[in-house]
Design a protein around this nucleic acid. Structure first.
Lengths: 200, 200
DNA sequence: AGCCGAGAATGACTACACTCAGAACTGAGG
DNA sequence: CCTCAGTTCTGAGTGTAGTCATTCTCGGCT
């Protein structure tokens, strides 16, 4: 195909550059002031693009947050995987993973909670959302891995339990009731729940 | 002015009447067209009150949905409690409760999902939200009750497991991914998860 | 009755996410 | 080089949740 043979025309480069400017602008503004205190207009201005252009790159403000944060979660997952490797018990292994995700999530409480809300209630067909779901899937695989290795749980059951661990994290980290809780408090609550669901 | 002896003056009666008109109007419109396709303006008009007045009775549109739906969930919980009483096993008992809640939630998918979103991410200090949380608390007590009775789980652990069951329901019923799933499909998925977390 | 303070009601107004009709740009073919 | 079809960009415009200064109403008090 003639189009495919020249993948890097000016057009393509321009699009890429814009996406990078948007990501940088949104990343900075969100981190600095929190999602709710930044308008899409300000992001567009900071990225030096028109209002409408922003929505060609992320269909909603929520998608924009996913775009910006996915990389952080992906990195947190890798750190968690490493930490889980040398955990003494199944619960500790799962919690090693959970701890990294939770810390990543709580860097800025509002952003973290909004990220989770978007994950559960947003539109999964949008690309950045799909990527976020893929990270969740990898997280669940990691949890399931720990369970089969350290607690001899059969694969099918491990997958189900990993799904439950996800649900626990989502609700615990997302709930407004816990918005004011410290990370250790959250982890303690999650640990209690995780410990209760693992087979003894 | 027939009534000085009544506990409430005209003012109080007026407020009550307005709340009832609002509830009726919102209830009907939400049921008919779904939360997202009804504007607060239309509700205000239907209730024959000013735009701003609506927000004296429910601080956000989400709160309004809670106001309207709480009674349904409360009733569903009672039905579930009754059904759980004569269930043969712990899993069946829990699922009897879950089934009623799920059916209530799915009467109108969007409204149900929005209700759950509001529960987790809304402002718990608002009165209708507080009532919704109370219903969840009662649901968890009911689940815990089933677990202690039918599976001899100690009270503390039963409470923790009930919390986990809540989380499973929230995510399963709320997730956009499951927006198109039928009730039996949802119940099957929840049952698998519930079965996996109960002690064997 | 008539007045007054507290609380309730109101709707014009604001802020902001998102849209869309047209302008501007790109690159392929002549 | 020029044209043109396709793509991308744009910002004025739109719809709607929620606010607030003002007006209205009630009921206690003299």
């Amino acid at each position: 195909m003639p189009v495919k043979s020249r993948p890097f025309g000016r057009r393509e480069r321009n699009k890429q550059a814009k996406l990078e400017r948007i990501t940088a602008a949104a990343s900075e503004l969100f981190a600095e002031r929190g999602v709710d205190d930044v308008t899409t207009q300000q992001i567009a201005d900071a990225a030096d693009i028109g209002t409408g252009t922003l929505f060609l790159y992320a269909k909603t403000k929520g998608e924009l947050l996913l775009l910006v944060q996915n990389a952080h979660y992906s990195a947190a997952l890798e750190r968690g995987r490493a930490a889980a490797a040398d955990a003494p018990t199944a619960v500790d292994g799962v919690m090693a993973l959970v701890e990294q995700i939770a810390e990543c999530n709580r860097v800025q409480v509002d952003n973290g909670r909004t990220y989770l809300r978007e994950m559960v209630f947003g539109d999964p067909s949008e690309p950045h959302h799909a990527e976020a779901l893929a990270i969740v899937a990898r997280t669940e695989e990691a949890v399931a891995g720990v369970l089969t290795r350290r607690a001899q749980v059969p694969a099918a059951e491990a997958a189900t339990l990993a799904q439950v661990v996800s649900a626990i994290m989502f609700v615990e980290l997302g709930a407004t009731l816990n918005a004011g809780s410290s990370i250790p408090e959250l982890l303690a609550s999650i640990r209690t729940q995780v410990a209760a669901i693992l087979p003894r």
